[in-house]
Design a protein around this nucleic acid. Sequence first.
DNA 1: TCCTTATTGTGACCTTCGTCACTTATCGGG
DNA 2: CCCGATAAGTGACGAAGGTCACAATAAGGA
Lengths: 210, 210
Amino acid sequence: MELSTIPLMFPAFEKELQQEIQEQGEIRFFKTDEQLMRTGQYFRSTMLILNGLVKIYREDDDGNEFFMYYLQPGQACALSMVCAAEHKKSAIMAKAVKDTEIIAIPLEYMEEWMGKYKGWSQFVITTYRSRFEELLSTIDHIAFRGMDERLEFYLKKHQETLGTNIIPLNHQEIANEVNSSREVISRLLKKMEQFGKVKLHRNAIEIIQL
Amino acid sequence: MELSTIPLMFPAFEKELQQEIQEQGEIRFFKTDEQLMRTGQYFRSTMLILNGLVKIYREDDDGNEFFMYYLQPGQACALSMVCAAEHKKSAIMAKAVKDTEIIAIPLEYMEEWMGKYKGWSQFVITTYRSRFEELLSTIDHIAFRGMDERLEFYLKKHQETLGTNIIPLNHQEIANEVNSSREVISRLLKKMEQFGKVKLHRNAIEIIQL
DNA sequence: TCCTTATTGTGACCTTCGTCACTTATCGGG
DNA sequence: CCCGATAAGTGACGAAGGTCACAATAAGGA
């Protein structure tokens, strides 16, 4: 890793904290579509994203993957913090959607730094907070809205995160991630196209205006 | 408040922290069915539950109330922490289900204590953690399961929290809290009764075995 | 260019759940 | 003990969304 990455991605951290991360953290690489963590796995460390992009899913027993949110560079996986701290199994699955570089912080340092560095405890709290809100809004959508609205919400999130109007996913993949079926997604997308909200391409959806 | 309440409910806090809570916190009482916080409200403080029992709901624009979890004595509202810290509107609603006594901690102390008392920062983190998991399991149920399983889950949570096999709710109330309709809940309960899982009474449901 | 394969489009049909319109208990007061 | 009010039960019907079976399109390699 270039020495400049940590200060760049985590500018709010104290110099000494950045130094410690550099020393104690373990860099790892994941290629596109590789899983960073699997449901049922135990953790001894938390992960900070240095670059790339990660998707977080909730899985059920039948292997259905429900997409919850994106993790971007400069962010950490709140769940890995929970699990590491409480010695619990992972309840989620994380998958790289671009080639991704992370730095793994062992549990013992996570805890030590909580008292030692204000920047760290701040970061941990903020991480919990933002994911908390993310989950609440997810609950909203699946509790109160129909598939049509959820699909729009899903597309919007991708548009924002990817920073592009072309979402490079096919109908089957979308269906899996919102826990529906391909046919239903096809039908809804078609309807959205008729309303001029999107334009459908093979293996991609172009967002016109949501 | 009796001087002994704080140490009793929050034994993990440092003596000085307990002292500060005593001095800076403001005690408030809520009667059964009173709202502790409303959707859209701003906070300047977080709330620790001293005794009683509180239910946390997510509301949508049409006033539907979706039950998320219970708050018990010794616990705090994670959401009030989020909102107070970020000067955001409350995204949830909290209602006392028994006469309830809380102590409100102003934002400025919340932040000060984070650095000052290990017991406090520990408590805040733990609060986020446990609610995080609660939300995850909620998402599971509404994303992957049907009404029948969700209803069982709902009843189980009440059984555990109330510590009794008699759930003192009518069908309409349950329907509201799981975002369904009375008729559907009636039908499902009836079916559960036929399977020997519950016994139905007027204004109450007796749990036999789930 | 043609052929194979992956993707998308569609109609028929079923289940779950919400809604409407009642009927049938059950409880508590007068 | 009767009455009105609340709670609960029920049948009919419709909408949303899942499933099945195929048809219709691209797209890419031989």
